[in-house]
Design a protein around this nucleic acid. Structure first.
Length: 827
RNA sequence: GCGAGAGUGGCGAAACUGGCAAACGCACUGGACUUAGGAUCCAGUGGGCGAAAGCCCUUGGGGGUUCAACUCCCCCCUCUCGCACCA
């Protein structure tokens, strides 16, 4: 089975060694050359790489090597997102220290990646759990603290009972922990936040200015930021001067349709509004009922809305009318003011609630004719709305806000769904938050010269809850940086998404000791020209990194507004229709794959089987096909080695057959270049290369006697050398080896990417399809750009065409130059 | 419910700004070479009718625009992903 295969194991390790010895992919800033920063999302060192890694790194490597060959100075780094919970869980389960577990995994996975033959500058490897790395984010934390961008507050947060820590909003999916899928529960806790909301508007605005990002991701980010424009104003409580319910609405035009108002159950005003013990008891019972529902139940679709009518009433300032006031579970304390005016005529939720509770419904927008729906949210002319009558919705919104502002009752207001990023984690394996709590001075940041605050190694990790750091006296007890008195260190660590929010900057100067990164290096390399990673980070890492970059910019550290120029979000690797997972037993192990078929085959298949943004269905037979293809290339080149080596470098064919073959070569160059550069359609680029191999083989077999030997050899050489160069980014080992065996001394990756020769692309003649009434009935061969009259005459002269379209029935002839002729007939 | 994307052979997929649907690969069938082959090479392979030449049909369904529609427009169906009481 293996005797006919090319010796991929030897060849691959040989070239991996040579590239490393030559430091082939080490780069430095070189202003004389255009730069290209190619980055794939760095992995978490979970233990072993999986097929998803193989795919994403193969995609990045094709791009990086392609850019190398096109003359770019390519930064292509790799590192480790090394802090995180699995390390700590491993410690709890197996008693191994998180650091040891992490570094062992890194060593293993680095070796695996090296076996893939990836063009990384390994001298820039970054590991985020090292003090020399997180030192700088501690420094930035202090600077953010000074500017109010980092702050501490008590709040209700998402608590994962299994991970024993707080989660950011972005890390909760369907009410469950993004990592372990446990149901999260609300918990009142003191914690640290980054003020990402201060950048909501800018993050949103730039969503329209990143054309290199997939629309899908931008839409998810826009929705996540969730900007809504409207008005905020007071509804005075009837008979309680000085007390008012502040409401937010995006539809100030509908104020005349307000028939009741609603507070969130936990709204602080509720306690002041209850009239007596009986009402208080009812409120408490209602609150308890709401609290019993889990997050998942609360957000389930079509949940009936439940509410409790309070004795207090509020006044609609526009009409002076007193309306009832409720607390209800469909109003959330966390958004807007935690209170709404209810307009059942124009809001479906209010409509549902009004119907269930027998409340009146007033329509304030003229329905379109034939309207049969319930609440109407479309555009139209205002009715039943006092001074707003006759206006459009947009005009009425403006006028209503003016009215509020003139009377000092309210104002225009923009709300965002985005919340500040909770970064405190009550866990050990993360970067310490560099602040202390002094008995006299209160909260005090660590002095810059004392950074890094190093995470101690010697801890007891029990998993019992609470940060294990709290038990380490030598860590916790430290002098106050302000007064020198007794202080206790913060024992929360930072969310690991903080490390990944700036690693791409660290790669620019990974050994720089004067700061986060060397400004000149970052100015040269940033932004990342092409970022590649999974869609699962659409509102996690990709939003945090954008935010953090803007913070660094505003601290004067970088000039870039956005970290990632372009984003390619690759699909999953699936097998038998489902994501690969141990429990399904459909996992393909990259080690096995590389051992059996070699890295070039593994790379080729993962690039060929599907376009990068789509899911890739793994198919063992398909892998064998790719292996077969590489063996064919191997035999093709070695079988003609002497002939090719003796040939002239370029061919000037004297025969039509030779010219046709040379045209195929150069058309392939154009196709492959276009597919890689413009579209990232590596699958079609590979198929074009396969077609070239087929053409080479056909030429090799057919041309032996019919062509001068020198011409044949020169064409074979041009074909084979072009093939190797086009295939090089995909399968770097076999192509380097064959390139060397052809007698080249330098690396293939120092050879320029081929350019199509315009002269070779010229055709003398083209075959046109002749259609009659849109159906193909014949073909004619004419000169390129033949005059329309001639094309028409030749098409009509074709025997078969005449049978379908006799001269007397021809109504019209459409000629598309160099493509086809369509003859339209009268019936 | 809202938003985004997608529906093409037995399978993964191609088809540039409307111009030969199914490139390339897998699988399958037949043949060659072989002691043998699951290696390699050659031929075939969307469906139907036909001995063949050829004819008809076919890109989720239905309409439309056009000389010409996988591609553009309208309606409908299905699937995937994201958001989901955000006022």
């Amino acid at each position: 089975m293996s005797s006919d295969r090319y010796p991929f194991l030897e060849i691959e390790s040989k070239w991996q060694r040579i590239w490393e010895q030559r430091r082939q992919f080490q780069v430095s800033e070189d202003p004389s050359r255009p730069k290209f920063y190619c980055l794939e999302m760095f992995p978490y060192p979970s233990g072993r790489i999986h097929m998803g890694h193989v795919r994403v790194y193969a995609i990045g490597d094709v791009l990086a090597r392609f850019k190398w060959m096109r003359g770019y100075n390519v930064l292509h780094p790799m590192g480790w997102d090394a802090f995180g919970l699995p390390a700590e869980n491993a410690a709890i389960e197996h008693g191994v220290h998180p650091a040891i577990w992490t570094y062992e995994n890194i060593d293993y996975m680095r070796a695996q990646l090296k076996k893939m033959g990836l063009s990384y500058d390994w001298s820039r490897e970054v590991t985020t759990c090292e003090p020399s790395y997180y030192k700088w984010e501690q420094l930035i934390f202090i600077k953010m603290l000074e500017r109010g961008l980092a702050y501490r507050r008590r709040s209700t947060v998402n608590w994962c009972p299994s991970c024993q820590t707080v989660l950011a909003n972005e890390q909760v999916e369907d009410g469950r922990c993004w990592r372990c899928a446990s149901e999260v529960t609300p918990r009142e806790i003191e914690g640290w936040f980054f003020k990402i909301t201060a950048y909501a508007e800018e993050l949103l605005a730039w969503c329209d200015r990143l054309p290199g990002w997939p629309e899908r991701v931008m839409t998810m980010q826009r929705n996540w930021i969730g900007k809504s424009e409207g008005a905020e104003f007071d509804l005075p409580v009837a008979g309680r001067p000085g007390l008012a319910v502040r409401v937010f609405t995006t539809r100030p035009d509908t104020v005349f349709g307000m028939t009741y108002a609603v507070l969130a159950p936990e709204h602080p005003l509720v306690d002041r509004l209850v009239a007596d013990d009986r009402e208080r008891a009812a409120v408490e019972a209602f609150r308890a009922e709401v609290a019993r529902q889990s997050e998942i139940e609360r957000t389930a679709a079509d949940r009936p809305k439940r509410g409790l009518r309070l004795g207090a009433r509020v006044v609609n300032p526009f009409t002076g009318a007193e309306i009832p006031l409720f607390i209800a579970d469909y109003v959330l304390m966390g958004y807007g003011t935690g209170a709404i005016m209810a307009v059942p005529g124009e809001d479906q939720r209010d409509w549902d609630f009004a119907r269930a509770n027998g409340l009146p419904i007033i329509e304030t927008v003229q329905r379109p004719p034939g309207w049969t729906g319930e609440a109407y949210t479309g555009d139209g002319i205002k009715i039943n709305s006092g001074f707003l009558d006759g206006l459009t919705v947009a005009e009425a919104k403006r006028r209503a806000v003016e009215w509020l502002v003139e009377r000092g009752l309210g104002e225009a207001k923009v709300n965002y769904r985005l919340r500040d990023w909770g970064i405190s984690r009550q866990r050990y394996w993360g970067a310490p938050i560099p602040v202390l709590y002094c008995e006299r001075c209160g909260m005090v940041p660590e002095k810059e010269e004392n950074l890094p605050v190093v995470l101690p190694r010697d801890v007891q990790i029990s998993g019992k809850g609470g940060s294990p750091l709290a038990e380490v006296a030598s860590f916790v007890n430290a002098p106050c940086p302000a007064c020198g008195g007794r202080a206790r260190r913060e024992t929360d660590t930072m969310d690991t998404f903080v490390e990944s929010s700036w690693y791409f900057l660290r790669y620019c100067s990974p050994h720089y000791e004067g700061g986060m990164f060397e400004p000149r290096a970052a100015e040269y390399w940033m932004p990342v020209d092409q970022y590649i990673g999974g869609i699962e980070h659409a509102v996690l890492h990709l939003l945090y990194a954008r935010f953090y970059t803007k913070v660094l910019r505003d601290l004067g550290l970088t000039k870039v507004d956005e970290p990632f120029q372009a984003l390619l979000s690759q699909g999953m690797v699936i097998k038998d229709g489902a994501k690969m997972s141990k429990s399904r037993g459909n996992v393909v192990d990259p080690d096995d794959l590389i051992r059996t078929f070699g890295a070039d085959t593994a790379r080729l298949f993962s690039l060929f089987a599907a376009p990068p943004e789509k899911d890739l269905e793994w198919n063992d037979h398909g892998v064998e096909g790719c292996s077969r293809f590489l063996n064919r290339v191997w035999r093709l080149v070695l079988g003609r080695l002497d002939e090719i080596r003796s040939a002239l470098a370029t061919a000037a064919p004297s025969t039509a057959e030779g010219r046709a073959f040379r045209r195929t070569i150069h058309e392939t160059i154009a196709r492959v270049t276009h597919d890689i550069e413009r579209e990232f359609h590596f699958n079609t680029a590979v198929s074009a290369i396969m077609e070239l191999v087929n053409a080479l083989q056909a030429f090799d077999q057919a041309s032996t006697d019919r062509m001068p030997a020198g011409e044949r050899a020169a064409l074979l050489r041009e074909g084979v050398e072009t093939l190797l160069r086009l295939l090089a980014p995909f399968c770097p080992h076999i192509t380097e080896e064959l390139w060397e065996r052809l007698g080249h001394s330098g690396s293939l990756f120092r050879a320029p990417w081929p350019e199509p020769d315009p002269g070779a692309l010229v055709r003398e003649a083209v075959e046109l399809v002749v259609q009659v009434d849109g159906k193909v009935r014949g073909r004619v061969t004419v000169g390129v750009d033949a005059p329309e009259e001639e094309v028409r005459r030749r098409a009509l002269a074709d025997d078969r065409v005449r049978a379908w379209a006799p001269a007397d029935r021809v109504a019209r002839v459409v000629v598309v130059p160099n493509r086809l002729v369509n003859i339209v007939t009268r019936r």
